[in-house]
Amino acid sequence: MSIIKLVQAEKVYYKLNQEIKALNNVNIDFSSGKFYAIMGHSGSGKTTLIQILGLLDNLTSGKYYINGKDVENLTEKEKASLRMKKIGFVFQSFHLSPNLKAYENVILPMIINKDILPKNRYQEAINILEKLNLTNRINHFPKELSGGEQQRVAIARALANNPDIILADEPTGNLDEKNEDNIFKLLKKISQSGKCVIVVSHNKEITKYADVIYTMKNGKIERLTDENS
């Protein structure tokens, strides 16, 4: 079932009076329970795509639907609410709060979620971290964690509000080979639990794990072969 749909999506930037089409008439949809990989060289538009999908940026033209609802014209407050409930982000540079412990970073998105009672936040965070094999790290600050551990905490944070969609922008960009594998495996597992996982990466290793692979070039997207999971 299609959870995300882009129709004739375009994103145009202007740099030094030159028009740059980061997204050029993109038509794409994403379903739950699948692991999508979006690949391409630098400047191909993949990061712009994931930012649009994550409601971090707006389309210049076209439509964007989440669960069948047009989200392009939502107010900032509505978009923020949607991000909180439906979307979990994983960034290349982890972007963990340095002043919060691992479990506190996971709790961070829960604070604004009225569906999670304050008294339950801690346990929910511990549960998620346990699933990601971080039981021994819950009280550590980010600077006390390895790169792989930090990214797993970031993934845990992305899962905090049980979103339907996980977006990851180069999640293995700052990791070694072993940790890259672990992260992709983890994201695969998450997609198998029913979530729509979309990962932007130029790392070819992702092809081993992705169900569907897209490539982007000059703002245009092209689907490569499906890979059965």
């Binding site: 971090l56 900032e76 407050k77 923020a80 909180m84 972007h95 709060s97 998105p109 604004i112 509000n161």
Partner: peptide
């Protein structure tokens, strides 16, 4: 500012 951006990405409103 970076932390502010992160919070906004997580769904925090300007008011929060």
């Amino acid at each position: 500012e970076q932390e502010i951006g992160l919070l906004k990405a997580l769904g925090y409103t300007n008011k929060n």
